[in-house]
Simulated scan of single mutants.
Amino acid sequence: MNFKLLKKFAIITNSLLLLAGLFFIIYPTIIYQEYAYGIYSNNLFTEILIFGIVLGVFVMLWSIFGVLAVQKSKIMMQAAYNVGMIMLFLLSIAILAISCVVQYQVPNYKNDEDCTQQSVLIQLKQLNFKSSQTLCQNECLCNFQGTQSQADNLGITNYDNKDSNPVRVQDCQIFENFNLENQNDNSSILQLFEEVFGCSGFCSQNSYYLFSDLNNGIPNGDCKAHVINFVEDNILALVISSSLITALLLSCIIVNVLFYLESLKSRYSSK
């Protein structure tokens, strides 16, 4: 292949990586703006945003490094760049594979409307049901900060305004006696859902929060519905974008490896 033409291709593909870097910054920012203003400002989407910005900046800087390596025709720089590209390519493949698996599985979880078929959904439903019969009920005195009328409207029957009382079901002594499968991990999952989506309940809707802080207001729906909607809204875009980025990275690797080999050939043939 013509060396000058190959060099142009290498510069073009490296420059296109800047777009991939921008995507890693812009897309998490959009997600953050849409979902990060729930009960807590410091939540999962903040971490996603930070990861996206760090990865995006790294990709952009690496693309600049690739252009410099091509322009200067430095063998060691090109070798280092290609190793980094292969690592990015493997990461991209992993993201694409996970995205495809999630997209394939979503209908199975969505169609399990009563949470009676998928084991994870069954566990979350059982834990939520048991917790709804515990926190602020006869088995667990809670620290509810509202009035008696508000407590009655929410179905709260056992409460007292003392800071020593639990505000989430995980703080109830009886919680450890539930003996449900994966209950500690699942309670963390349900707490995350409540904090991120402002929901409470699973295949049901609770009138107050169970796994975060019951005084945070009134939940806005069933957590399962919120999670499914979130995944459906974003998974197709993630599959398409990760496919395009994976293809771009593969193109960059092929072109830059060819350029590296041509550089080696040119270097040693001139000796």
Rank of each mutant, 00 (worst) to 15 (best):
V120R: 14
C252F: 04
K110V: 03
F58S: 10
C252R: 03
T134C: 03
L236W: 08
Q150R: 09
A80F: 14
V120L: 13
S132C: 04
Q33A: 12
Q137S: 04
S132G: 03
Y209L: 02
L248N: 08
A79V: 04
V106H: 05
E194S: 01
S188T: 14
V255I: 12
K162L: 12
I31E: 09
T246S: 15
L68N: 13
L5Y: 10
N161W: 05
G21R: 06
K4F: 07
Q133I: 05
I245K: 04
G52A: 09
Q145A: 07
Q205M: 06
I189K: 14
K130S: 13
E262G: 05
N158V: 02
Q145I: 08
Q118P: 01
N82V: 08
T29W: 11
K130E: 15
V239G: 04
Y268S: 09
Q183K: 15
N206Q: 05
I50G: 08
G52V: 01
F9G: 02
E181C: 05
L55P: 00
E47D: 12
Y37L: 10
H226F: 13
V106P: 01
K72E: 11
Y37F: 15
K125S: 08
V59L: 09
L90Y: 06
N229H: 09
I174Y: 07
V196T: 06
L55W: 07
N184L: 11
L17T: 10
Q78V: 06
I75T: 06
L17C: 12
N82Q: 12
F24K: 07
I218E: 04
L238D: 02
L210D: 00
N182L: 01
L22F: 14
S243W: 01
H226S: 13
N82R: 12
G21F: 12
Y104I: 03
Q78R: 09
A36M: 06
Q170L: 05
E232G: 04
T46E: 13
D152Y: 02
F202M: 03
V231D: 06
F202H: 01
V231G: 07
N143Y: 02
Q133R: 00
V239T: 07
F202V: 04
D163L: 10
E47S: 15
E34L: 14
S242M: 08
S269N: 15
A225F: 00
F58H: 01
G221Y: 00
N2S: 08
I93P: 04
Y268K: 09
Y268W: 13
F58A: 14
T46V: 15
F175V: 01
I86Q: 09
S119Y: 10
Q170Y: 04
I122P: 03
F178C: 00
N177M: 07
I53D: 05
E113S: 12
V106R: 01
F129N: 14
G221I: 02
V70G: 02
L121Y: 10
